[in-house]
Amino acid sequence: MSLENDAHASGARGIDRSPRRDLTDPRRAIEVEDLEAGLKEPVFENLAIPEALGPVTVTVDDHKIKRFAFTQDDYDPWTLDASPFGGRRIGHACLLGNDLLQLFTLVYAGSKTVGFHTEEQMWFDSPVFLGERVTLEGAYVEAYERRGQGYVVMEARATGEDGRSIVRHRGVEILRTVPGAVAGRGEGTPDRKVTGEVPADARIVARVDGDVREGDVLASMDKTFTAEQAAVFSRIGEYVRNIHNDLAIARAGRLRVPIVQGQQQVGFLGQYLTAAFGRDFFTSGWLRVKFVNTLEVFEPIRATALVTKVERVPEGVRVDVDLWIRRLCDGKLTTVGWGSCTVKA
């Protein structure tokens, strides 16, 4: 068959109509010229508050789990084989985080977005299982201006087939900016400053259990995100182009090379806290982080957490931590925040 005939036959076949795993279906490119036609320009002036985002349904199939495992370099056997949840395979704790964050691209053109994710908050209510069809839905709920930048707040949720909450998200983002000009504006928050300092006499613990005490430090975890991992995480497979997967767009944003999404760093923290808290993190975990410096692809980083409070509750032991990610090349923090989990007695 000639190339011309082969191309014609491919077009005649049309789109595979099987359930999709992606937020937007890249298979539409077979029949659609402009995948972002009709979507709004992602600028502050175009916001509508409140503005519904979704719902959309995605399937957590084997490929979706393995793709996330590659982007995070996180091959947890619970996600690839059997988990403590009835022996069934589950997705990583933060598997659906970027889907929720990116819900806005159902309304706004994702490839025209040059934003900056400033804050992320996630609540983990239950694991998601292999083969499950999940409904994602959210809304822009607030918009404001500060220091010459326009911010927007999104709240969203992933719901399982049986109606249970899997994970909830609240994110803050500058909708359009020059990323290289706004990063590194500070590491404090009105809640409590996270210093990234470890007490000299701190006890290092690998796992959190009922014997944990205030002042303990969770054993650190190191990671390096490659350009390939960042590109796949940031939706290159859906033909979305941005400062995380395209060198030219990154440099137009005054960046030397693509930077790692804040949400990809959240996935790293999800891996780190899952290792510390185990299965309990999937049902009672919480984290809130702020992104304070950019992270370039190929830059080594280290995640660390300090136990700040241990409290006996009816369900077991609630443990609060300060946590942070540090660039190992220069010692600067990229992400700071807080987390908690209730360890069952």
Rank of each mutant, 00 (worst) to 15 (best):
H169N: 13
M1H: 11
V56G: 01
P258C: 00
H8A: 15
M122G: 11
R28A: 07
P179G: 10
R168V: 01
T342L: 02
Q263L: 14
L323I: 08
Q264F: 14
P55D: 09
S234Q: 03
F68E: 14
F298T: 12
A206R: 15
E228L: 12
V60S: 10
L295G: 13
T71G: 03
A37V: 04
G38V: 07
G267Y: 12
R20E: 03
V317T: 14
Q264N: 01
G160C: 02
W123P: 04
A252T: 11
S126K: 06
S220M: 13
G196T: 02
W324E: 01
V56P: 00
E214Q: 14
H8G: 13
A303F: 01
N242P: 09
A82P: 08
V336F: 03
I15Q: 06
R170V: 03
E173S: 15
V232L: 15
D246M: 00
T195A: 07
L328H: 10
E41V: 12
V205C: 04
S234K: 07
S83C: 02
A227G: 11
V307S: 03
D61M: 08
S18K: 11
V336E: 14
P42Y: 03
G160Y: 00
T304N: 07
T308F: 04
V194H: 03
V289D: 04
A303N: 02
V32I: 07
I301P: 08
G270Y: 05
G163V: 07
D61T: 05
R312H: 11
R28K: 09
T274R: 07
R213V: 11
T274V: 14
T342G: 00
R192H: 14
R326I: 02
M122W: 13
L323C: 08
